[in-house]
């Protein structure tokens, strides 16, 4: 069951036991007595796979706070069992992704004073992934997709044992390696957001930039283009750029990864000149079959498959 993330919409599978009037917290929790000062209200989805509802928490406003700060104060006050993921609280780890007022964002980098004032801020879990509890979702899909990737396979180093790469040649890959795996690009991708059935064969924007990173890596020897065509569902992407818009690292997912990847795959499979070239010229990259054999998911499924 996925929660409805639209602000103000009626909650899915409403559970009345979770609906506690906001005022109750102010009365029962010491230190939060209404003092007439400015306040903020979070409307947080609370529930589990069986269903849930939005619950409002009114808290005193504090200057400079981000959404995660208020969530933490809710945990320390009225709702100690409110589940949410977070780690660095500095926009570097990608743990605290949520749908804030209907849009995916990192709770740690979304300032309260930049959201509409005077109305509750609606915080819901990422919709594309199954809910575990409250704001925490099961993102194992992304880890499964990561294991299907034939890993980096570098060419041998130079005579002195050291690789030489120019800055300009590593910069494309460095852009993709800024990815903090917040999985918000996966969350907004309509190929899987509203189509659970596509998940089995769709790697998603996060993995497309990973494939493109390796495609553009100056040292890599694996040819993954045939695999990308057959197994990652790249053709299902119709370039709506939703992923690019939500990327907190500003990675040009569509322009710099997905479109070039599509071109490379098409060239590899359907371009007669490229085909002829491959027949005549010496092959420098390993084949699709060789590359596929390297992917860990095909040899040793792990715990995350549960």
């Amino acid at each position: 069951m996925s929660p409805d993330t639209t602000a103000g919409a009626s909650p899915v599978n409403q559970d009345v036991s979770l609906q506690v009037p906001a005022q109750a917290h102010l009365e029962t929790h010491p230190g939060l007595s209404p003092d007439g000062g400015p306040s903020v209200t979070l409307s947080i989805w609370r529930g589990d796979p069986g269903g849930g509802a939005f619950v409002e928490y009114q808290m005193p406003a504090i200057e400079g706070e981000v959404v995660l700060d208020v969530v933490h104060r809710v945990q320390a006050g009225p709702a100690p069992d409110l589940a949410c993921r977070w780690n660095c609280k500095a926009g570097k780890c990608g743990s605290c992704s949520a749908e804030i007022n209907g849009k995916p964002g990192l709770m740690c980098m979304t300032r309260m004073d930049q959201l509409p004032q005077g109305v509750p801020v609606v915080v819901a879990p990422l919709r594309t992934f199954p809910v575990i509890r409250d704001l925490v979702t099961d993102v194992s899909f992304n880890y499964t997709m990561a294991r299907q990737l034939p890993p980096f396979a570098p060419r041998p180093a130079g005579p002195d044992g050291i690789y030489r790469m120019m800055q300009i040649d590593v910069e494309r890959g460095q852009e993709f390696r800024k990815c903090i795996e917040c999985f918000m690009c996966q969350d907004v991708c309509h190929v899987i957001r509203d189509h659970e059935e596509n998940k089995a064969f769709y790697a998603g924007p996060r993995m497309f930039i990973r494939y493109m990173e390796l495609e553009s890596h100056p040292l890599d020897t694996n040819d993954r283009r045939e695999l990308i065509r057959r197994r990652t569902g790249l053709s299902l992407c119709n370039i709506t750029k939703c992923c690019t818009e939500v990327c907190p690292e500003g990675i040009h997912i569509t322009d710099n990864a997905i479109i070039p990847l599509k071109e490379r795959v098409v060239d590899a499979s359907y371009d007669p000149v490229a085909w002829l070239g491959r027949k005549i010229l010496r092959r420098t990259k390993r084949s699709a079959a060789e590359a596929a054999a390297d992917a860990p998911a095909f040899s040793s499924p792990t715990r995350e498959d549960r």
Partner: peptide, 25 residues
Amino acid sequence: GDRTGLEMIRTLQQQAVALGVEVFM
């Protein structure tokens, strides 16, 4: 740049995944 830790953890993570280390998250 100033994101060396990210580069390091991602590289190690990807290598561990490639080797098939069982992870209990």
